[in-house]
Design a protein around this nucleic acid. Structure first.
Lengths: 230, 230
DNA sequence: ACAAAAGTGTTGAAAGTACACCCATGT
DNA sequence: ACATGGGTGTACTTTCAACACTTTTGT
């Protein structure tokens, strides 16, 4: 069923950079393309936006179809539309990034024929289209996001230890943090709730589990408080 | 000359929120629509993206065609694509914001039939489509941008006085600043060059003119220095 | 008993904030 | 001469950054 317009239109897609945290590393979810162009190469999950579908919905749908992920933190990143970015024709893509924690949302295989896999940052293979460029911007944005908002809690399970949280920040920021200063800042902010539980599997001394205090955070955000967590 | 595709495609436009500074106020450039829908209502300048044209180029072209402005600071804001945002059909728009200073880029009239005019923030009329929503986001972004980068200098003429700069910050941030502390912070940053000139038209004591030190700024930005100017 | 990671306070430096007077100029 | 806005320094408070030892627990 063909569709005809008075003027030429670029095609519109959404692409999504999915960041996932496992015990060791922050990883990125990639799919191996089953179709031309760039067949067999790795790429960001994504696909064509349907008419009547908002870009947010489209990004969520593609993510669900290609990777099985749903109910994740998803935010628009940037729109890329250089005419040469797709060899076939002019394709404009609205890029998103998503944060998931790999323990609560296990790494589901793709539902269609394409292969999906998680890659640590420094082992990302060459990517199709301008996806390396998109990924680079997403990484920058992730750093900024974690610095100024408590988005880190989207990457962690509901209950987490302070060393886990600190280690997440250290890996994203690219440098180590002082344990005492890090905890001091957190406790002054008051967005963590101490639980009575401790981690179970610990090989050494078990760390206390904490939860994120959504309500306290809402209050602070509404009051325009400074939420930088270094 | 009609164009036919295998699947339906949303239309793609760019829209631009143009902020301009004159002596009194930060103003927004709006055009009065000459065509349906929303004929006669005020709206953001913008129009359809052509195939083979990058969104940045499209936004610049529309801005030039509709308002005569060129060579301005232009940055992508967000992409809006709710299917209901245009009553005709699904239109996705890539929104930009621009910063101009009204002394160096005088308020040129529109080249096509539409009327163009500058409105202070609190006198913006009801806008077509979801343009009020776009404008609100642009305002938030402008505040953040001025806070963390020296984008303020895009709004000012090449040579400006410190009271002008401070007043700009005060209007954007919505509160007053201490004169001495403001100057202290600026001089510590070292991104201003003192000239030997003074303002001419002053009704009272003339203030010294300063220039923005682009090179010093580049050096700082490259070194990831903290550039917050309150 | 020891190895390995969890947890906890203090001090000095830097930055931020509040605050008041003199100066230059046009009328 | 005076009214108006331009220009300047200091003391106090808060925040940031550096730093080392004790505790717990599994092996």
């Amino acid at each position: 069923m063909p569709f005809t317009y008075a003027y030429a239109r670029p095609a519109l897609t959404t692409d999504c950079v999915v960041f996932g945290l496992d015990e060791d590393d922050i990883k990125v979810l990639l799919i191996q393309r089953g179709l031309e162009p760039f067949r067999g190469q790795w790429a960001l999950p994504g696909g064509f936006l349907r008419t009547g579908e908002s870009p947010d919905d489209g990004a969520r749908r593609e993510l669900r179809e290609e990777t099985g992920l749903s109910e994740v933190f998803l935010e628009q990143l940037y729109t890329f539309g250089e005419p040469a970015r797709d060899p076939r024709e002019h394709v404009v893509t609205i890029a998103y990034y998503a944060l998931v924690n790999l323990l609560e949302h296990p790494p589901t295989p793709a539902t269609d024929a394409d292969d999906a896999a998680w890659f640590p940052f420094d082992e990302v293979p060459p990517l199709a289209f301008d996806h390396e460029h998109i990924l680079a911007l997403a990484r920058t944005r992730l750093t900024a996001k974690l610095r100024y908002t408590p988005a880190a809690f989207e990457l962690l399970p509901e209950k987490f230890t302070l060393p886990e949280l600190q280690s997440l920040y250290e890996r994203v920021l690219g440098h180590t943090l002082d344990k005492r200063n890090f905890r001091k800042k957190l406790s002054k902010l008051g967005i963590l709730i101490e639980t009575d539980e401790f981690q179970q599997d610990a090989a050494r001394r078990a760390a206390r589990l904490h939860r994120f205090d959504h309500e306290a955070y809402q209050r602070l955000a509404k009051a325009d408080a400074d939420l930088t967590l270094l």
